[in-house]
Write a protein that binds this DNA or RNA. Structure first.
Length: 629
RNA sequence: GCCGCUGUAGCUCAGGGGUAGAGCAAUUCAUUCGUAAUGAAUAGGUCGUGAGUUCGAAUCUCACCAGCGGCUCCA
């Protein structure tokens, strides 16, 4: 976000982005009027508005928003002109030294240290420019709106912290987020939409619908799937399992822990040590160290260096699957070998990053590892992409973007030869082009052992989450000395493909809850049908219908409470049950049932047998829509 | 991990230096009802945890824990 935009990109800034970028300047002006010691760093427009990073003694809290907004509206009313000024590098530096750049001209302050740094980052020979509105001048490439009156429809959203240029070592700044629109109506629509989105938050719906629970006593980021959530997960797993069977995968089961040596070989243990649960030392090591009065540091060092053996909660499934592959001899005729597992892994994510089901410390990947010949890579990757597309398509999730994650050529965090990286990246690029969807190539997003194709979706508050992923790996097969016998009767190293169409069941379910607003299609709904007797007089008939539905394999519940029908309907709708069957004396006499769907007022009458046939075929087809009578 | 905010009944939240409140949910009773809330009664809380200040702390202070919004990270 901090890279310098090209002139072309700046010219392409939309009118709305100009309003927002200008609003960031107006906000800075307002802050300076209230707190003159503020030092500004960087203030761009973003997808949902704008922010400005700054440093000052006063800590902004939401209580200050009203005061800042009032000053901003005042500045908008003053209708200051945004004036472009081209200045020389020397002028810019002189202005920054006197605190007038990113400051008030009439009230210069301390040298603008961030602006000085930003000036140094502008390539020699490039025109340096600034914009002035009223008495506020800022180093800025623009573009802006003409006058501050365009910036009157603003709202401050939140305050948080950030690092200067995203660098943890460069100190912490305050970041104030706001949003701005071209009209009051658009602003209000946006704010209403945000309120609506909050109601879809999976953390809120997960609680309301009884899908999952996170308990302090169990641990941060560890999901307890409650019965209803577990039914959703089971349906998803059944779906995937069916697809895997069709596509020639073999399902395996592996333990949740493995010896440290396994991860030393894979390279994960030293590389990701900070984000793993600490290793479990063997008992005799602990006893020996206790006898010697050794410190924890001795233990940790010994584990790290390999002096002591221990176990790790598995942070990924690859090494276990690799060992399954390696336990047999393989001929090129056997390949590809496709090993799949719903494999639960544990990662010590930073506490501040955890949240709901989307970022957790224990999660289950719908994982698989494919071992194939170099010739098979392209076809296998394409097959994996098709699977991801099938999964997302079945669920009606079409709001994803595709990212080709490549290595950053300037970084040394990657393992393996440049030649293999080039091959892997080329294979993925070729495969993603067959997908027929737009994709972006992003440098530095690759895994340390190989490039990947990621499917990224947004949650209700606009955050990006990586779901499905397909990765080509030339490195682990070498590290683990894997082989197969080729047609030439020689030993060859297979290529590995890692892939997970959902990513993790936790994250995927969290995003599904938001995607469907809790109104899952019938095949996923924890409770598919609710039977509602009108009174105790028809309870017996309702019990019989419930039993018949359950017998047919439909997930059904009966409402035995003494409430009126209206209350029972309301409760069933709040529980997002797709179908309600109302049974009164009339239906019993006629031998029919009255069906009401979750989203309509319309009532349909048919026999129970007809309904069972229809709903069963809807479930089997994994239909997104309810059946049409 | 860092910055900021928050933590009161199962849930949503009010209150606030003199020992706890509402609505919903729950339980019981009455009602037997025709498509989004029938009525009444009852029960329910060491006010996140620990320490400190105070005659007295849910309320003030500090530490810790957890959640939320960002940052950083994400094999």
């Amino acid at each position: 976000m901090n890279e310098r935009k090209t002139l072309d990109e700046r010219a392409q800034m939309t009118d709305l982005e100009r309003v927002r970028h200008s609003s960031a300047h107006v906000m800075a002006t307002a802050i300076l009027r209230i707190w003159p010691d503020a030092q500004f760093a960087y203030g761009p427009p973003i997808e949902a508005g704008f922010y400005y990073d700054f440093e000052m003694a006063h800590r902004v809290t939401p209580d200050d928003f009203e005061k800042i907004e009032a000053e901003m509206r005042k500045i908008a009313k003053e209708n200051q002109k945004f004036e472009y000024k081209a200045i020389s590098r020397e002028e810019a530096k002189a202005m920054a030294e006197s605190g007038r750049l990113g400051g008030l001209t009439e009230r210069p302050g301390n040298p603008s240290r961030f602006k000085l740094d930003l000036i140094d980052k502008i390539p020699e020979g490039e025109q340096i420019s600034c914009f002035q509105n009223g008495d506020f001048i800022d180093l800025c490439a623009g573009p802006h709106v003409g006058y501050t009156s365009k910036c009157k429809n603003v709202k401050l959203m939140s305050v948080s912290s950030s690092f200067y240029l995203g660098d943890e070592s460069k100190g912490q700044l305050q970041r104030l987020y706001g949003t701005a629109f071209e009209s009051k109506e658009l602003l209000e629509t946006h704010l209403t939409r945000l309120e609506e989105a909050k109601k879809r938050d999976h953390r809120r719906l997960g609680k309301e619908l009884g899908l999952f629970h996170i308990d302090e006593a169990v641990g941060q980021g560890l999901i307890l799937w409650k019965p209803k959530g577990a039914l959703i997960r089971r349906s998803l797993q059944d779906f995937i399992t069916q697809e895997l069977d069709k596509q020639g995968y073999s399902q395996v089961f592996t333990p949740h822990i493995g010896k440290l040596d396994l991860y030393r070989t894979s390279g994960h243990f030293p590389y990701y040590q900070e984000s793993q649960y600490p290793a479990i030392a063997e008992r005799d090591v602990l006893e020996k160290l206790a006898d010697e009065d050794a410190t924890c540091a001795t233990l940790l060092n010994g584990l790290e260096k390999g002096d002591y053996e221990g176990y790790l909660l598995k942070p990924m499934n690859c090494p276990h699957h690799i060992k399954i592959y390696a336990s047999d001899h393989h001929s090129y005729r056997d390949l590809p070998v496709r090993l799949a597992e719903f494999g639960t892994v544990y990662r010590w994510e930073q506490s501040g990053e955890l949240g709901g089901m989307t970022r957790v410390r224990g999660f289950t990947q719908d994982d698989a590892h494919l071992f194939c010949t170099p010739d098979q890579v392209a076809a296998e990757v394409t097959g994996c992409l098709d699977l991801v597309k099938k999964v997302l398509g079945t669920l009606g999730m079409d709001n994803y973007r595709v990212r080709l994650s490549l290595r950053d050529p300037t970084s040394d965090k990657y393992v393996g030869s440049a030649e293999n990286w080039d091959k892997a990246e080329a294979a993925l690029r070729q495969a993603v082009q067959t997908l027929g969807v737009e994709y972006t190539e992003e440098l530095g997003e690759a895994a340390f052992y190989g490039p990947k194709i990621d499917f990224v979706v947004k949650d209700v508050i606009g955050r990006d989450w990586q779901l499905g992923t397909v990765q080509v790996d030339y490195n682990l097969p070498v590290r683990f000395d894997l082989s197969y016998v080729g047609a030439d009767n020689q030993q060859h190293v297979p290529v590995m493909i890692h892939r997970a169409p959902f990513g993790s069941l936790e994250r995927f379910t969290g995003l599904l809850i938001e995607h469907f607003e809790g109104k899952f299609p019938t095949w996923l709904a924890p409770e598919q049908v609710r039977v509602i007797p009108i009174s105790e007089k028809t309870l017996e008939a309702a019990e019989a219908a419930t039993a018949q539905l359950a017998d047919a394999g439909v997930r059904v519940a009966i409402d035995r409470t003494n409430e009126k029908v209206g209350a029972k309907i309301r409760l069933a709708r709040l529980d997002r049950v797709p179908y309600m069957i109302v049974l009164g004396q009339k239906e019993v006499d006629e031998g029919t049932i009255s069906i009401r769907r979750r989203d309509t007022e319309e009532l349909v009458t048919m026999t129970l047998e007809e309904f069972i046939t229809a709903v069963k075929s809807e479930i089997t087809a994994r239909s997104l829509n309810s059946f049409q009578p």
